[in-house]
Amino acid sequence: MKQPHLHQQRSRVAGLALIALLFGVLALFSACEPAPTDGVFPDRQTDAAGSGDALAAADGVTPTDDPFVGTWAMATDWSVCVTVGSRIETRSRKLLVVNMTRKGHRLFEERTVCQLGLTPIFGLKTVVPKAVLDSVGPLQVESRVVGEGSVEVAYSSAPEAQLMGVKMVNPVYDPMPAKGDAADPRLTDPENDGKPGATFEVGGGCKLYVAQREVSSLMGRVVSPGRIEGGGVHATEQVVFGSSTAICGQPFATFSNTPHHRFVLQRLAKGQWDDNNNGQLDCAELVAHQGEFVTWRDPDNSRCPVEKP
């Protein structure tokens, strides 16, 4: 085997020495990482400072005894006038479970629709199937309280939209599907019957295929600790895509009868009406106990003026 010349050996040694020196310095430097330190800013109490997610309640109200935070039972009782030759009032009644939190003056509500009932028109009752109700899903609504600490504590909620048979990016403001446009991609089929939109049952024998939006906003006052009552504004938009029989698919002129809308919010104590002891208020429990917090108004055609208000 040929031996390298002496100067070649020296060159290799010198080159290797240089590289070894470099990596030796690298190893030395790598040990120079500074010890972690904190900044000079101390933690602040977010409640006192009012920042972060744990905002304080109104002055003098601590989260533990906040009169709004918790579970509420809600009943809305909307008055709708229908023109069928004469003016007829029908009441649209809903029961909802509301879980409420707050940040300052703002209340954040998660509303779950448990029951929807319409009083009959000429004996024909409209039934909304449970699958359709379930499709409405929990609704996030922001409300306000004004005047805490005064005699009159007011309550108002932002517009809330309940969609049936249709989905929207902006449920309150997006346009409804056009009449007859059963191919609108926003239409849903919550009961999976293959018909466009939601299917309502009218009078027990007729099926009505619709896309429907109810928009409402509540305004009321605290009538007693844990109870809010009042009215509001309410509008229903409905697009009919067909019916199983022609008669129930006939459109009727309707209008919202604002002066006669009613709602009730009843705060529940921990465990109240929790019959199955699962730690929360279920829809079945709310329906069973509705008589303990709401008295539904019966329809009264005299409430519907001859002329549209």
Partner: peptide, 17 residues
């Protein structure tokens, strides 16, 4: 290496406001 953020300096969530 970022120093940990102390509590209480975030931009608060005041919903639409």
């Amino acid at each position: 290496a970022m120093k940990p953020r102390p509590q209480g300096y975030d931009l608060p969530d005041m919903a639409q406001d």
